[in-house]
Design a protein around this nucleic acid. Structure first.
Lengths: 228, 228
DNA sequence: GGCTCAGTTTATCGAGCGATCACCAGAGAT
DNA sequence: ATCTCTGGTGATCGCTCGATAAACTGAGCC
């Protein structure tokens, strides 16, 4: 399977890669191309990026759509490699520190032009994988964060967070996410210190959570349909 | 200029609209089409939506690109019709109330599938008009909000907000914006009471601003490069 | 050397795209 | 009734797209 060093490396014009290498090269360059041009990017432009001809693509993928699916898989699964559970749930460390570190590594993983653009393009296509990712963020990140917050505040542990809590977490999460969009999609000037931005966002989120927890039963304004 | 009621209305197949009507019909339907399909949407599909033939488009627009520009103009200028300045700067009303109302009418204007999708598509194309809009949000909304916040907190009025303040406001604004994205782009379930979401986001933003104002000089964590 | 097999290219197809041009048709003025 | 002006159509051009089929080529094996 693994091609073993063909001895004569670095030829002038290296053609004839191993099947595995060529295939992953297609996926990599396709990710770059689609990130810039959208999924309307052409197979000929892609081939040009690899220095090969266009029909070669069809030796490795039955259709352009299959290539796109592979790009999705790679992009969406990449940032999941970090050990989220451990980071967020390790109660031997202060909550504040855990959250700070989690969002630093999470944004390290997704705050780049390639990831964000592919994510937005696929979101606009309304694909299932996008919905899956959003659900994953909700279940694996936000719900977990809220559980830790409740524990930290000495509140009863709920199996699922309330809708209001979840929305609070979403607005917090979305605010951080939008920082990446401003920087890498809109290319607008942002506060360069990302860790500081996260820290400030955390400050107000945690303060907001405490406040919500304190006034859980005696909300100043009319409560809506919040259960309990 | 103004076509005067052609008397015989409501024909079975109303062809032959006035030039003005047909032109704006093209823009309207093109907005819908491009919102769904992206700007790669075809001129034939557009013509089909109007019930006319494709070459007719070129009686009204020199090229597809010109049509797209018109769509941009319409979409980006639409939400600007609200009287922002008055809403935000009317100091006879409590700040909290002003902010709540502003974000309610602002999100009423932009939280719909058409606007958000066109906005994201054009943002991905990296067009000048998008940068212009982001700068406008910064100057006309966030800067103004921060000025009112500083006034409300009894702080000295600055000509321009600090980078940290601005980032705080951006994260807040982005969090609200992302609510719209979740609802209309990702079509994910959201807390349906939009006003409540805004209210909660405002709570934590205002609390965060106060906190930042209080501890402006004696930050608990190591200050970074914040001026002053 | 000659065979084989896998990676690559050349040539090409049919469909769809944006755009152009000559022509058509119907309402209003005369 | 006829003319005219203009909104609208039919046919088509050149190009690019995704995809296919057949031919080519070079490394490994006998």
């Amino acid at each position: 399977m693994n091609r073993k060093a063909p001895v004569k490396r670095a030829r002038a014009k290296q053609k004839r890669l191993s099947a595995d290498d060529r295939r992953s090269e297609f996926v990599t360059k396709a990710t770059e191309l689609f990130a810039e041009e959208g999924f309307g990017g052409g197979t000929r432009a892609l081939a040009r990026k690899l220095g090969v001809t266009q029909p070669l693509l069809y030796r490795y993928f039955p259709s352009k759509d299959d290539l796109i699916k592979e790009v999705y898989r790679k992009v969406y699964l990449e940032p999941l490699e970090i050990g989220w559970e451990k980071l967020l749930s390790d109660r031997s460390r202060p909550l504040r520190v855990r959250l700070q570190e989690f969002y630093e590594v999470y944004t390290d993983a997704i705050f780049n032009r390639k990831w964000l653009r592919i994510y937005l393009y696929s979101g606009l296509k309304g694909l299932d994988i996008n919905r899956w990712y959003v659900g994953m963020v909700k279940d694996k990140i936000l719900t977990r964060i809220l559980r830790e917050c409740r524990h930290d505040a000495g509140l009863a542990t709920q199996s699922r967070p309330s809708a209001a809590e979840l929305e609070l977490a979403w607005v917090f999460h979305g605010g951080i996410f939008y920082y990446g969009v401003r920087k890498y999609i809109y290319e607008a000037p942002v506060l360069e210190d990302k860790a500081q931005m996260i820290s400030d966002a955390l400050d107000i989120f945690l303060a907001g959570f405490e406040r919500m927890a304190e006034s859980a039963t005696d909300r100043r304004r009319a409560p809506v349909k919040v259960a309990g």
